[in-house]
């Protein structure tokens, strides 16, 4: 009996000893990953999308490199669905299915490393939605809720026969819009399309100028945002490089107007300073994970004709005179 106990004691001691000598360190704990969920409801579109990814570890020596594809993908499928709520009760459930064919924007993240889920429905202004992403096998669920923003009425710039767009030192370029009932963030992009002729090489290109971000608590009054022409020319000079012998000519302008939903706007409003808005990465309204569930509306005004003054200043302004834009009168 004593012998059996002794053997058992030594065997147990050996097992414990061996395990205690295990020197493997689990540097990356699988359970430390968090779901990253992005969904921006768009009342202008018939299809809505949810993007699902996960947080990933970045080794110090590879900081700045693109993360590998598999570091963004969950190893299991997710159940994605939304509920439309009325008077504090869900009245409709919308199921999302995985869309493998979705063409994603390029960027620093590998495009095939993000799962896209799609559902066919068109949200309306003021409707409340709850989003759920459920990983059955991992027993993880993330959720968020949002209220769909109102569609802003973009007044200027507008396409009118004979009307031109001027960036000069005397007449300001003004963006005008009426926000609507709910809070929102607003930003315009002036896209300048131009041609570039270098030797026998001809190419159409573009550069963009972003207007400052504007917060509106929700109103029916007209907002005005004046754009400083010199800032525009400075922005052009920062994007285009002087090239010996190049001939550039402006083709037209496009105006893209982004309106971001109330969740983001309220968060920014709490910060109290629009200048700190650049820290979007810190904002999340997703419970159990990270990301944004909100709404956005994009409006596009194509083919705005540049005035002769815009052409003149592109070829003569301090910032852009060396960029090879054709002089007014020679075109």
């Amino acid at each position: 009996m004593n012998r059996s106990l002794s053997i058992l004691f030594w065997f147990g001691f050996l097992v414990l000893g061996c395990n205690s000598c295990n020197s493997d360190l689990d540097l990356i704990d699988e359970s430390s990953y968090r779901p990253v969920v992005y969904c921006l409801l768009n009342p202008s579109e018939a299809n809505q999308y949810v993007r699902v990814g996960k947080t990933f570890s970045v080794a110090t020596e590879s900081f700045g490199n693109y993360p590998p594809v598999d570091s963004l993908l969950w190893p299991v499928e997710a159940q994605v669905y939304m509920e439309r709520w009325e008077n504090k009760d869900p009245v409709e459930t919308i199921l999302f299915s995985k869309n493998e064919m979705f063409v994603r924007d390029s960027g620093p993240f590998p495009t095939n490393g993000l799962s896209i889920y799609q559902a066919k429905f068109q949200p309306k202004t003021g409707e409340k939605y709850h989003l759920y992403v459920h990983f059955d096998d991992l027993d993880i669920i993330v959720s968020g809720e949002t209220q769909v923003m109102s569609r802003p009425q973009l007044l200027d710039p507008a396409i009118v026969p004979g009307r031109t767009i001027t960036f000069d030192t005397i007449s300001p370029f003004t963006v005008r819009w009426i926000a609507g009932d709910y809070p929102g963030l607003y930003q315009g992009i002036v896209k300048m399309n131009y041609s570039e002729l270098l030797g026998n090489d001809f190419e159409n290109k573009y550069c963009c100028f972003l207007t400052p971000i504007y917060y509106d608590p929700g109103s029916s009054e007209m907002n005005e945002e004046k754009i400083n022409s010199m800032n525009f020319f400075k922005s052009v000079s920062q994007q285009l490089k002087p090239i010996e012998g190049v001939q550039r000519e402006i083709i037209n302008f496009e105006f893209i107007f982004y309106a971001a939903g109330s969740d983001l706007a309220l968060q920014v409003n709490q910060m109290g300073d629009l200048n700190t808005f650049s820290s979007v990465g810190d904002f999340s309204n997703i419970s159990g994970g990270m990301g944004v569930f909100s709404s956005r509306i994009v409006q596009h005004v194509p083919n705005l004709v540049p005035s002769v003054m815009t052409r003149h200043f592109l070829s003569t302004s301090t910032y852009t005179k060396d960029l090879g834009f054709i002089k007014h009168g020679n075109d």
Partner: peptide, 26 residues
């Protein structure tokens, strides 16, 4: 549709403006 200023009437015709306004309906 347009509101442009020039030094002379001839300059208006030749599109040698001092400024061209971004006119608006508002």
């Amino acid at each position: 549709a347009d509101l442009s200023v020039a030094f002379t009437a001839d300059s208006l015709y030749r599109k040698k403006f001092v400024t061209v306004s971004n006119v608006s309906d508002y």
